[in-house]
Design a protein around this nucleic acid. Sequence first.
RNA 1: UGCCUGGUGGUGUAAUGGUAGCACAGCAGAUUCUGACUCUGCUUGUCUAGGUUCGAGUCCUAGCCGGGCAGCCA
Length: 596
Amino acid sequence: MSAENTSPSPSAPAPSDFIRDIVAQHVAEQRYAKIVTRFPPEPNGYLHIGHAKSICLNFGIARENNGRCNLRFDDTNPVKEDVEYVDSITTDVKWLIDGWADHCLGFKAKGTHPAATPFNGKPDFYLPPVADAKSPDAEAFFASDYFEPLYLYAVELIKRGKAYVCDLTPKETDEYRGAPDKPGKESPYRNRSIAENLDLFQRMRAGEFPDGARTLRAKIDMASPNVWLRDPLLYRIRHVDHHHAGSGWCIYPLYDYAHCLSDYLEGITHSICTLEFDVHRALYDWILEALDLPRPLPHQYEFAKLNLAYTLVSKRKLLKLVEEKIVTAWDDPRMPTISGLRRRGIPAPALREFVTSVGVTKFDSLTEAAVFENVVRNYLNGAAQRRLAVLKPVKIVLTNIPAGEEVACEAVNNPQDEQPTTRRIALTREVFIESDDFAEVPPPKYFRLKPGGEVRLKYACIIKLDEIVKDASGAISELRCTADLTTRKGEPNADKKVKGTIHWVSATKCVEAEVRLYDRLFTVPEPAAEEDFLKVVNPKSLEVVTAKLEPSLAGATLADRFQFERLGYFALDPKESQPGKPVFNRTITLKDTWAK
RNA sequence: UGCCUGGUGGUGUAAUGGUAGCACAGCAGAUUCUGACUCUGCUUGUCUAGGUUCGAGUCCUAGCCGGGCAGCCA
């Protein structure tokens, strides 16, 4: 990959969008010493394909500008969060950016916290220098590591008369807020003295009050047309331990308060989020300005999140699919989670290519599934080794080949390679072909095997169907054919043309494997728009078969990507495949323009 | 009937006052030892109405339509 090529794959042009335009302008005017972005997931679920878009945007901007992108857990709500998710998210991010933007990944030394350090004569907090993300002593950033500075900033806000402790109940707070088209009402606790606020806030931290009894609120404007400016809550009381911060706290900051200050502490320059946070930007700016902080302030930019046809990207709904056992787990290969896509066999560069190709705008769009499928096929077409496999076998007996004889054939590993390599496969008396590749009563324009018809066995020779043998129940037990060995490569009739070429495996030299065939999880393009998305789950999203594979597939490794010729792209299941007992997942089918 | 934001072929996206382009999808054909890939051709678009301008997808005004926002979630 050339140094100036900033795209997710070596061949595509460097991406350009309205956010990158803004960053480019800031770089041109040297507004910041270094471009620093962040990816701030809440550890309350697994990352999905929508997050992949955000990851590629944030890390992409970092790598294109010799900057950095911090992985920061936005873990301010201990009630919903868990270390299980911290681990899965870290794994997923690293997997997605590996070999592309891993050198931009901002991590810190394990266990470190910001230290109080004056800056330009003002009190401020400094983070330790970033650590090598590949070191075992490094970890991601955590908003919960900033609880102490955040608390001190809140005290400062109180001292400046810009925050107060409010005793309204949750219900009252709601009523006082008013409605979008109706101004709110000021809290009766709004004008407490600074001394009283300081005392109360300190006692909130000390644990003197029960959950929900008091909050810390910003003093802004209860009549603002933007409801997020109507004295928003900054802190709430929660007497629970925190998965990362431990047991030291019973007050926890809310998103709006924690996020902008976390960005500030980390020296983030461009804080990129999705459209629904647009109305929060005024609050983001208000908090930072109210504190009169000494260093350059971060700014928030919003883009439209990814919507993909036939898929859901709501953590709540994805969790429901797991809980209802509609899928086996968060990383079920049918899930749009990053771990599910990985398990399905989608290569990280293909995922990056896709989420980059849809672009970055403020337009709420719905991307067709075909776009994703095209990118995956395109990538795999170049990357996958061709192999022969039969999913639903029908036995063929080549009556003119003696039992025990092996006819050596040469198969191409990948015709897309500039210098394709080959391997040997053996044609034997008995072989399996795909049941779809035979029709006793063929439809019009059927190119495959039919009574009295000829077809080529790929890499081998042309065969002619002589006889259909059925068992007592009328089911086909075998097809007796004659092989024309003179049509093999290198033989006199090698160039003989037949309409159909089909795949096959030797019945005596093959290996068996479980193969999982996946289809889309939902039957409608917009499952999220359904009143009950569980009612549009595709009942046929998974089919399991015992397939016959060419022997070389017994040596498949997790990193391998295969095209089972004429069927699709397949990869070993990293979770359930065992040595000697392989399990393959179908990543995606080949395009099929043959009318079914 | 509040605030924010957006509207370019079927879908997604580009054009930053100067030839509406690209990708995917679709259709037709060529090629093919994968009905894949590849190649060729075709269909289809600036929300509406005014205005500014030599010239408007782009700027202005009004309207229409869509999305988001009223958690002690993020």
